[in-house]
Design a protein around this nucleic acid. Structure first.
Lengths: 212, 212
DNA sequence: AGTTTGAGTGAACGTTCGTACACCCGGGAC
DNA sequence: GTCCCGGGTGTACGAACGTTCACTCAAACT
């Protein structure tokens, strides 16, 4: 039972509200352990329902995890849309992209943390789902890179390798922000590092390509 | 009780043997979950001792985890020593380093897997220990890079950033190998990707530096 | 108005968990 | 030869676990 609302509430609304409460509770509870160490009863207690009521919404903790993956990547995709919408090369692409990344990491801290954790430690199906989503991100990035004049004519394989490297660096940067002390100067350094690294990578890619 | 040996065995030897058995069992048991989901009783059962006997060797699962971190990095450090021993630029540094990395990942599969997992999902103290060890690796790499003629005069900060990028790429490569299908061609592609990426990074670093 | 449906309840089950405690018994020091 | 230290044992506990089942009762359908 999820607190009585002020006024009327349809059956479906009620259900959706409980479902959300379960997802939020799970996200919060596994913040410092992992899905694989999260119990159905903890979640139920946190939400304020009896354990068996959990099954009305999810088949298992693992199924709940897959839902959280979807949810996390919805917001991540929103971020990528933001990045892509920017006029390329109007202002510095690198600085802008990193700024948006950092912004979204703060806004969706729990989701990013969830992904970073379960990517390595979640149940196999969850790990697989996350890996798949990240591959999609790499493909999208590769497609975007084609639009940059100096990179357009590259081979598909080269684009894949470069995208993989960049996404990897962005994942690592997000992880660094998440696990750094929450002081602005610490974050500032991480951002500065990421910026330099992205520059190195891009310049390297260009020079490497033009001589091979 | 860990199987009766053929002949005499000192008290200390016996204890060490049980301790090893516990460490190995824990490493094997958390292979597809995480330390935070590993129970003392599972470990005890696997080893073949009664649950309470566990406390004769470790204060808690978390303490056992810290021990596993140390152990993992001992072998990792051995690997780095291998890499460093190679005559620089005798054969291609990149190819040789990656080859050694791959070799060690296979030899110490369980340890690498453990690190990759607990780095993101372990108990806070374990995460901290792993982060610290990885930082040490970055510093060692930075020191090594100083010996390369074209990089020697770089600033400490630039070296840090470059080392961070390279170590990050190596961690990601190791993770990719661990979670890839165990077919030689799949691994071959990962290795090829890593090699190209390292080249891009190094060339980028050199060019970026020489123009700033 | 009468009936169906389904989210949430509550008690109960068989396990497994971490930990406490008293105990055993053989190697090693005296 | 005696004593003690300590790795390993066995039992026992209260708590938490996933899952079952029969239930309520109000919204929604007919």
């Amino acid at each position: 039972m999820v607190e009585t609302p002020a006024r009327p509430e349809s059956r479906g609304e009620r259900k959706e509200r409980t479902r959300r409460a379960i997802l939020d509770a799970a996200l919060a509870l596994c913040e410092d352990s992992s899905l694989v160490a999260l119990s159905l009863r903890q979640v139920a207690k946190e939400v304020g329902i009896v354990p068996t009521a959990f099954y009305r919404h999810f088949e298992s903790i693992e199924a709940l995890g897959l839902e959280l993956v979807d949810e996390s990547f919805v917001s991540l995709r929103a971020m990528l849309r933001d990045v892509r919408r920017r006029d390329p090369a109007l202002e510095d692409v690198i600085d802008g992209s990193i700024r948006i990344l950092v912004e979204h990491v703060h806004q969706q801290r729990a989701h990013f943390h969830f992904i970073a954790r379960e990517r390595a430690a979640g149940p196999p199906t969850v790990r697989g789902a996350i890996r798949h989503e990240i591959e999609l991100c790499e493909r999208e990035l590769a497609a975007d890179l084609t639009r940059l004049p100096d990179i357009g004519p590259w081979s598909a394989e080269d684009l894949r390798v470069l995208s993989n490297l960049i996404v990897m660096a962005m994942v690592a940067t997000a992880e660094a922000i998440l696990s750094a002390p929450r002081r602005p100067d610490a974050e500032k350094q991480i951002v500065e590092t990421a910026r330099t690294q992205l520059r190195m990578v891009l310049i390297g890619a260009l020079n490497w390509r033009s001589r091979s």
